[in-house]
Design a protein around this nucleic acid. Structure first.
Lengths: 232, 232
DNA sequence: ACAAAAGTGTTGGAGATACACCCATGA
DNA sequence: TCATGGGTGTATCTCCAACACTTTTGT
């Protein structure tokens, strides 16, 4: 009764998008080095970890995010499970698996999430699964472990879909922001220019974006009106 | 190094939508009875099985579909992974788990798919995981095992989204069909009436639906023009 | 002739796109 | 006064929703 079924490791990987006001970034980690005497050159990856005993998928995703960023209550969304057995079989991945996993040949499926964080609120730290962390600009993502480049690609697609419908994205802005700041963010995510007047019209229709009686201060040009985001 | 990580069973469950020209149905199974002397009353569920050794998720979903229907190359789409540990902990599910699973307390995550099949092409059969099968009309789904009612609900939502964008659904129709047949299908899926003239306008804009030089035969009314679906 | 479904066009409103100039502030 | 980004309106087009009658076939 047992042997037909796969011994499967389930992990959760998290594509963490960060915004610094100018560029869209992704949080990468250096996968933890092997214990003791095993020497491995560091490998870049998106943050992820195996799911723990009695831990739900959403819980695991939140745990990973919190370990790295200390943040809770962040926008987080499951978008796809990746389970092709070959996703973990490339030669580049073997050494790492042998050094780390109880059963290096095990089939690993991963449930992928993406989340949105303000880079100014975060100072990512090493964690149980990461020896080091770094923000990398969207257009400069290097080759990563396993199929992580593909996962990022899918995450970005999903993010764009949601942004086109203006249903998410505001999580990346400061509490108070101008319309131009939203527009820059959207342009970075969608990777195209948008028309200012039309964009402003469409944003002002949303009742989740509410105008404040305040203006920017300390800028070297006409100060913009400030808005805030109230999740519906 | 091992004990923090969960021993996880990964299953794939498949919400199989069937269309008979009139109603939208879902294929349910009676979960296989326990071996030998264990007596269990049959439980209804959506088809699913644990993932096998070296089997991809899509492969598992296709296998389940093929075992039940003998069909291959059917429309099949992953839509969500369900992994809350409590999804398998309800009392109603315990007897079955104890009789069947090596480790009844294991955490089970399931990756859910939905697929679209023409009921006239299928005579579902019992299989390694199903002692019996039945089509049940969408509005009459009974209480099912685990969280399967919820999974169906999510599948239907996703199906509706796709249908509203007219990106899928034609897989459910015969090779040659009339515009009215598509409309009936869409009305059943969306559970609402659509305007005939507007619907026809929108369908005729799609270049995946191509008009044939043929008409219905043997009907007791003005015969309709036939169309076929060419996936893009 | 009747029953049954096929087939067909127009109008009005909403939303998207394209497009160019003046304004307020700090340096 | 200059540089920088803030702020604004109109015309056009496309897409969607509402709506009713005539046509073709089999019985």
């Amino acid at each position: 009764m047992e042997s037909r079924y796969a011994k499967i490791n389930v992990s959760v990987d998290n594509v963490i998008f960060g915004w610094d006001g100018e560029h869209l970034n992704i949080l990468l980690i250096e996968q933890k080095r092997a214990p003791k005497n095993v020497h491995l050159s560091p490998r870049l990856a998106i943050p992820g970890d195996l799911v723990l005993v009695e831990e739900g998928l959403d819980d695991a995703a939140n745990r990973i995010l919190k370990e790295l960023t200390k943040l809770e209550g962040i926008y987080l969304r499951q978008f796809e499970a990746f389970g092709d057995p070959s996703r973990v079989k490339e030669e580049k991945d073997q050494d790492w698996l042998k050094a780390f996993r109880e059963d290096p040949d095990a089939h690993v499926i991963t449930v992928a999430y993406f989340s949105l964080v303000r880079m100014d609120l975060v100072n990512p730290e090493a964690s149980s699964f990461a020896s080091n962390t770094l923000w990398v600009e969207m257009h400069n993502i290097p080759d990563l472990a396993f199929d992580h480049n593909r996962i990022i690609d899918k995450a970005l697609r999903r993010l764009r879909q949601n942004v086109e419908q203006k249903s998410i994205g505001f999580e990346l802005l400061p509490e108070k922001f101008t319309l131009t700041q939203i527009q820059s963010l959207y342009e970075a995510i969608l990777d195209k220019k948008l028309d200012k007047r039309n964009f402003r019209k469409s944003i002002k229709k949303l009742d989740t974006i509410i105008p404040l009686n305040e203006k920017q201060v300390g800028v070297t040009h006409k100060p913009g009106q400030l808005f805030e985001y109230k999740p519906s």
